[in-house]
Design a protein around this nucleic acid. Structure first.
Lengths: 352, 352
DNA sequence: ATTCGCTATGTTACCGATCACTTAATAAGC
DNA sequence: GCTTATTAAGTGATCGGTAACATAGCGAAT
């Protein structure tokens, strides 16, 4: 006869009290062995550690968090997992956090501000000790929840005019301006750009900011904005660039320089040009953003604007662990990690 | 004079008892409004919900987990965040899990089995209700901890000969075999392959399995294995492919077909060939694995082996939510999501 | 010798939910 | 009209840790 109780019940995991019983000390001593080992006499410590390994005891952080009111993790909301630069941010951040025994909890919202808000709601229930999220544009509900959370908030990858609290990033508008100036200074006649469209809550707002910076500089230089093309929706990638440049070339075959809001699109542009027999850079100069690896590898290699995303992630981590997480009254900080043009051969006039 | 106590102490977040006091019900009724709203009278429910919003109450899941012994999340350990196919697995999985109110906790180990074990240790302290990890090769300590965790374990992206428990994936060895047969059948004379090296705990064991399958089939066809090149370390990407094919071509200029363990390397191969004036596919045929978007966009487009990683993630989620998480005595399952060759123009003989 | 101070360890309450019961009130059945 | 279900809400214990304080033991200082 089977015993349904015994067979369906998982064996209970050992607790700190099981360890204490086995090692003949109080549960508090076990707790000390784990969190502050050098406050326990070496002999006792050894005995407890033996009991821990023999039972396979793993402390329950949910219980620990509840008691200590410290969850031990930081929440990160990214637009997407599948982007090398965001992945690098996550790595830089998590490396720094790990050193201080914080874990990073990563969520993503697929470039949707409504999803961002609902992810935040979920995360808040886990009581993160800090919240890192991407971009300067959020729903009002998101901003309100962030304020109510009472923990440090860091916006990354842009520098909001009015940050919620801390910000670590770079000026996306300046990215667009630099790109436009670069083309204007080199005497291009028909300067275009490609990006995606933001509709309602959905879209790549930082990409759009780059595009607006580009437009602003074109306007300042007395150029037409007709060749700035917002096509499709985020995330943009190779296929997006190919489609977008196809449309642009069909309508304006005389375009001689194009800025793509992402290297990934820019690579698509180069590929589509190859297929159409449009020579890059002789017929069309191309510039991207983000310095993705693929841009270095294609032929011609892509001129782009580089941001040190690894350092960005690290800075966020350092700011949190050294300041914001230590003293919750620390002043809000905005940190610019800067930009760097990387000239390669996809723009005419630059020889390499 | 400042009051250090009041200024440095964060305002305590409202608890379920604050809500109950404000709405004049017991804390248990508040709990019911949140978890089983239709077991509460509509009028009461409304009153409680009002109190919840007016206080900005967010339930504390750490407390809930402790009490209910259900953490509400599933842990996923990936080799890296920065890989489109792993990102897609995560998406498929998290979409299914979200429908059942599970959250996905993502960790990554940079292709390092020691890091995998330490990530697992961290995760275990958060009491995941299931653990999903990549690949068939793990450290003994990892396997032992998984067994002791007493929760469903799913290995993905390969089909271990002896799975720990459940497995959802495909045969990496078969991938290599298919690639080799494809080349052999088409009459190539000097067939090579490129991948990376596994050293100690570090490396791409699935990629290496593909390479071993490739070698096995070459051997079966009486071919030499001299052109199978293990170069560098995981993760492999564009630059890896370019370097590896450079070496291979330098040493064996007569190679006429090459399989790369990843499309990303394969793209690097194509790019390096362009730079060297080696024509693809006329001089060298190239085949990849993974059907990454970039492979579709380059010229010539890349022949590859496709795995439906989105479905893979979904299957894992469905298996967990429908079976393994419901009944902890469910039989271990191995599920093959299959493979599909996608013929494009990077292999000679195939016209498109 | 007494006090003080320090170290190692123990005791108890508590963090904020949910579970398992209990109770009160209302509806249904005969 | 009385018993029995059924529904709505409440009570108290508990999950597994940590905080805060208490205590015992022992060497150094007075």
């Amino acid at each position: 006869m089977s015993n349904p109780e015994a067979s369906s019940r998982r064996p209970r995991r050992p607790t700190i009290r099981d360890v204490s019983r086995l090692s003949g000390v109080s549960h508090m001593t076990v707790s000390r062995v784990i969190s502050t080992p050098d406050r326990v006499a070496p002999a006792t410590r050894e005995r407890v550690l033996e009991a821990i390994t023999s039972l396979g005891y793993v402390p329950d952080r949910a219980a620990g968090s509840l008691s200590s009111r410290r969850s031990g993790f930081v929440a990160l909301i990214l637009p997407t997992l599948n982007n090398a630069n965001f992945a690098i941010v996550a790595r830089g951040l998590s490396e720094v956090l790990h050193r201080q025994a914080y874990q990073l909890l990563i969520a993503y919202d697929d470039y949707d501000l409504a999803a961002e808000e609902s992810q935040l709601t979920q995360l808040l229930a886990r009581r993160p000790e800090a919240i890192v999220l991407t971009g300067a544009v959020h729903r009002p509900g998101t901003v309100q929840k962030l304020a109510a959370a009472g923990v440090p908030v860091v916006e990354i990858s842009d520098l909001p005019a009015r940050p919620i609290q801390h910000a670590v990033g770079f000026s996306n508008e300046e990215v667009g301006r630099i790109a436009a100036r670069y083309f204007i200074e080199r005497g291009f006649a028909h300067i275009g750009a490609i990006g995606s469209r933001c509709v309602g809550d959905k879209g790549d707002y930082r990409g759009d900011t780059r595009l607006r910076g580009f437009e602003a500089e074109l306007r300042a230089g007395g150029r037409s904005l007709d060749l700035v093309c917002r096509y499709g929706s985020a995330p943009v990638s190779f296929g997006h660039g190919a489609m977008a440049i196809g449309r642009l070339l069909d309508q304006n075959p005389d375009v001689d320089a194009v800025f793509a809001v992402s290297d990934l699109s820019a690579v698509g542009v180069v590929m589509e040009c190859q297929r159409r027999g449009v020579l890059v850079p002789d017929d069309l100069s191309v510039m991207g953003f983000g310095d993705f690896e693929i841009g270095r590898e294609i032929n011609p290699a892509l001129t782009t604007i580089h941001v040190d995303f690894y350092a960005l992630g690290q800075r966020v981590g350092e700011h949190l662990t050294e300041r914001a997480l230590v003293d919750c009254n620390v002043d809000a900080v905005s940190l610019d990690v800067g930009l760097r043009i990387i000239e390669r051969s996809s723009v005419k006039g630059k020889v390499r």
